[in-house]
Simulated scan of single mutants.
Amino acid sequence: MTVDLNSRYGLNSAHSEVVDACKIIEPCDTLDMGCSNGRNALYLGQLGFNVVAVDANPGAIDMLQSIVSEEKMTNVKAQVYDINNACLGVDYGFIACTVTLMFLDPARVDAVIADMQERTLAGGYNLIVCAMSTEEHPCPVRFPFTLKAGQLREAYEGWELIKYNEDIGTMHNGAQLQFATMLARKPG
Rank of each mutant, 00 (worst) to 15 (best):
A131W: 01
S133E: 09
L121D: 05
P140V: 09
M116P: 00
T134A: 10
T134I: 07
R108L: 12
E136M: 12
Y125E: 02
P140W: 06
T134N: 09
F143Y: 15
D115P: 04
G150T: 04
G123C: 09
F145G: 02
I128F: 10
E135M: 01
T120A: 08
Y125K: 01
C130W: 01
N126G: 02
Q117K: 15
R142C: 04
L127P: 03
G124L: 10
D110A: 14
P140C: 06
E135G: 02
G123D: 08
E135C: 00
I128A: 03
R119I: 00
P138T: 07
I113Q: 05
R108G: 01
F143S: 03
P138H: 07
L121N: 13
Q117M: 15
V129F: 02
C130G: 09
D115K: 09
H137Q: 11
P144Q: 11
P138I: 08
H137F: 14
T134L: 10
K148V: 01
I113P: 07
A131Y: 03
D110M: 04
F145W: 15
T134K: 08
P144K: 11
R153V: 04
R119G: 00
V141H: 00
H137Y: 13
V112R: 08
R153S: 11
L127W: 10
Q117I: 14
A149T: 14
V141F: 06
A114I: 03
I113S: 05
A131C: 13
I113L: 14
Q151L: 01
Q151F: 02
I128V: 15
A111I: 07
G123V: 10
F143P: 05
A111Y: 08
Q151D: 06
V109D: 08
K148C: 06
F143Q: 03
E135R: 13
H137C: 13
Q117F: 06
D115A: 07
G150V: 04
A122Y: 10
L121R: 14
N126F: 07
L127K: 12
R119Q: 14
L121H: 04
L127G: 07
P144G: 10
T146N: 09
Y125S: 02
G123E: 08
A149V: 10
F145H: 13
M116Y: 03
I113M: 09
C139Q: 05
V129K: 08
L147Q: 08
R108Y: 02
T146R: 02
A122R: 15
G150Y: 03
M132Y: 02
I128C: 03
E154F: 01
R119F: 07
R119P: 00
I113N: 04
Q117V: 11
K148E: 14
V109Q: 07
C130F: 03
S133F: 02
E136H: 06
M116C: 14
L127M: 12
R153F: 13
D110N: 14
H137W: 07
E118M: 02
A149G: 11
P144L: 11
D115F: 08
M116R: 00
I128L: 09
K148W: 00
E135V: 01
V109W: 05
E154G: 00
D115E: 13
M116E: 00
A114R: 14
P140G: 05
